[in-house]
Design a protein around this nucleic acid. Structure first.
Lengths: 339, 339
DNA sequence: TTGTAGGCGTTATCAG
DNA sequence: CTGATAACGCCTACAA
């Protein structure tokens, strides 16, 4: 910058002004500065700029690396973040909430106070609310994605998990299913809990039978769906329909049916939740609930960017709608519609 | 920092020394400083530290967001990066090579010169070598992952794609298959090209028939595998075995067989490449080649970190071994072993 | 073992 | 519209 100033016979200050956006500088000077900058192959030193501005120019994305990073859900959310970005001087840093050192939010708080990032997007948070509370109380601009924290003070963008499961249940019930089983997600995830609760709720309301083994544990991974499917399809009082708390597990359930030479949906109906890309490619194509991961990512990032720009903490708890995607993995139960 | 100094009745400088690692400071002073730091809830300002050090403390990860970010392969690599990290003052920034502005490497070069990151890991690079060359010539510490660039000057960590396809071909040939088809990956990816070349090579060597439609285009996505499978299984001279250039497409091929009521492996053998988590969960479990994505990620990150620490550009082209994972999607061809 | 002086490259502020 | 001066918070180098 000093070089440019010398080259143009002016001060650094004027050069800075031009490069920062050309506030009130004589057009002629401006042109000369720009020419010199080009000639000298100048690029700002972000490090120095950041120091004076007190900003790092980075947005943190906190997520469990193991279990979420390689999933389509994560990919879609992240593409949403990226899409929301209008200013290109903000980039994304990834933090692994699975590391022990990140478990309690203390570490992220510290990084924030060290000016490593300007705001935080939290994906796949655990039920452990104290994690989020501690981030909040550190004054970090914060948006939680995928679930709604207890405290309404905390900004979040999620989708209607309860409503989604309700749609699935209704659909199966209308087809005539009365023996409906459920494969749940990890116990420490709020989304998993919401989905399970709504299933149980539905069964209670409609007075459906729910032997204990109708509620199968799962990890959101295909393998757990396969195991749960095997248990359900070989156990007593075989269900006529199985709801998996996400698509991956639904695929696993379908595989288990195949292994047992049961046809989907003829012998058993299977539904999932998420609407992954592959859901439509499966045979049979999977009936599922579409979760708008891309939109969730985009909206949450927009909120955070705005917050960072304005220095006002983000607020509001947005719950996006989900929709039932009817494909071919569901049909009337083998015994025909119930009464 | 000034506050701590005042609190302890010493200068900033001594405080700095203590906080930087306590070089040659009297233990008593050191203790007092640390106590005061704790009391005042002090955290270094990374922004200032970076400015003096001339380092950003970030490692860039350049990858196409669309098509790679949501995949298991990316997840594994990234977990490898994270695992390689010994110093926790280096974090990972994501850059989207699918953005137009990143296509030619110019943008990343600019970001580097602006000190946004200290080194770069490139994942899923395009065939376009000029992209990589331009990064290299900008002097960016650089490791390419997954493919071996033409210029041996450029550091890379990849796996033996050629050998892997050879293993698959050999396996099928030994079982007796003579009509082997191939579903290829995106035309602009080097890995895809290597795998295809080796398939063609094998067919040539063994004098296998290869009608033009035996080489089906694909995108590495399940849907393209499904389409290719349909074309191959309904076309003339039906192959007895199909090699998909990755697992996702192999799943698609299997689905297409199911739709056509063909049994895998009884009527047609199917193999993939990657060994995704789900490959073992499929029914039939998929015979495939294991690609050590985690190790590739870890090793490449280690090289880069070392380079950043020592200020010596990373070198060497490592090619990791792959291994054939025999599962249940392959068998002798329906007509029995060939002569 | 500790202190002093100065600089890293940029922007803020106020004066001209 | 432009310039002078100081500051951002830390670290390097040298001196005491």
């Amino acid at each position: 910058m000093t070089d440019i100033a010398r080259e143009c016979g002016i001060t650094k200050m004027t050069v800075s002004r031009v490069l920062a956006g050309g506030d009130k500088v004589k057009p002629a000077t401006k042109a000369r500065v720009l020419a010199a900058a080009k000639k000298l192959n100048y690029e700002v030193n972000t490090l120095a700029k950041n120091l004076t501005k007190g900003r790092s120019g980075f947005v943190g994305v906190a997520t469990p690396f193991e279990g979420l990073l390689g999933t389509c859900y994560f990919g879609e959310c992240f593409r949403g973040f990226s899409k929301a970005r209008k200013r290109f001087d903000l980039d994304f840093v990834l933090f692994d909430t699975k590391l022990e050192s990140f478990q309690d939010g203390e570490k992220l708080t510290q990084l924030y106070r060290q000016c490593r990032f300007d705001g935080l997007l939290v994906l796949g948070a655990h039920m452990n609310d104290s994690f989020i509370e501690s981030l909040k109380s550190a004054g970090i601009p914060l948006v939680i994605i995928g679930e709604k924290p207890l405290s309404s003070e905390i900004c979040s963008v999620s989708c209607d998990n309860t409503g989604g499961v309700e749609l699935l249940c209704e659909h199966l019930y209308t087809l005539g299913h009365r023996r409906i089983a459920f494969v749940e997600g990890p116990k420490n995830l709020k989304v998993a809990k919401s989905r399970r609760e709504q299933y149980l709720n539905f069964c209670r309301t409609r007075k459906l039978i729910t032997p204990p083994h109708y509620l199968q544990p799962g990890t959101f991974q295909m393998s757990s769906g396969r195991e749960a499917g095997k248990a359900l399809l070989t156990g007593h009082t075989r269900p006529t329909a199985i709801i998996a708390a996400n698509d991956s597990m639904a695929f696993g359930v379908i595989e288990s049916a195949r292994e047992l030479s049961l046809r989907v949906p003829h012998d058993v109906s299977v539904v999932g939740f998420d609407d992954l890309d592959d859901a439509s490619q499966y045979s049979p194509p999977l009936t599922t609930v579409h979760q708008p991961a891309f939109e969730m990512g985009k909206l949450s990032a927009q909120k955070l960017f705005k917050s960072i720009d304005t220095d006002i903490l983000p607020t509001g708890q947005t719950v996006l709608n989900v929709s039932l995607i009817l494909r071919e993995s569901t049909a009337v139960p083998p015994s025909g519609p119930s009464t």
